[in-house]
Amino acid sequence: MKRIALALFACCSIASADERRSGLLDMRPEAQAMQRDDSMNPGMLWVLDGEALWGRKPTPAAQSCADCHGDAAASMRGVAARYPAFDQASGSAIDLAGRIIQCREAHQAGPPLARESKELLALSSFVAHQSRGLPIAPPEDTGMRAVRALGQRIYNTRMGQLDLSCAQCHDDHAGRRLAGSSIPQAHPTGYPIYRLEWQGVGSLQRRLRGCMVGVRAEPFAYGSSEFIAIEAYLMERARGMALETPAIRP
């Protein structure tokens, strides 16, 4: 009896260790192949744009990203896997796009970068691409712990006219079909992503807005503490999974 219980426990713990899966694996084989082949992956166009921006001065008198950070392959390796991070100066969490915006304002005196602008998505894609294949590794500091707890609370809160929480679909019904689409587990492994539905690249916050509008809720603002908190919680939930930027999703 004890042995059976032990064996069951072992099976269950192996199963739960393997339960998390990237949305990549839920796509049809052609879409997976498109993501895996850089010459076919449309997200690489944003990465290449970002690479060009990395080396370019936003204004003639300003410094480029490369002037301070050098070769991104070395300096940005693993950075996206650790965001959102705690920003000591402001005493709040900051996402990767927010950090790029901050850098542009504080150190480059360039024109501000708007959320979801082509430029910001290109730079975010380029920086995140330097972590492709690395495990997601959120920072352990206490500041982030509180942020993640808030993110988890929002994730579990019913909202909108349809009165649904993120968890009710993406935890309780992942893998089931919502009309024709399979519900993903919502692991943010490949952002910014090239979404076929968008015919373009977008951030995780754009994706979250999509779900909020879907349940007829008032979406949070881009760069808001709520969105950054959800992002921090989702990254913790995906800890150890490999980054895929630029990922393709339906």
Binding site: T157, R158, M159, R216
Partner: peptide, 9 residues
């Protein structure tokens, strides 16, 4: 008893 319902709805 609903939460954050969008303005349209």
């Amino acid at each position: 008893g609903l939460n954050r319902v969008g303005a349209t709805w």
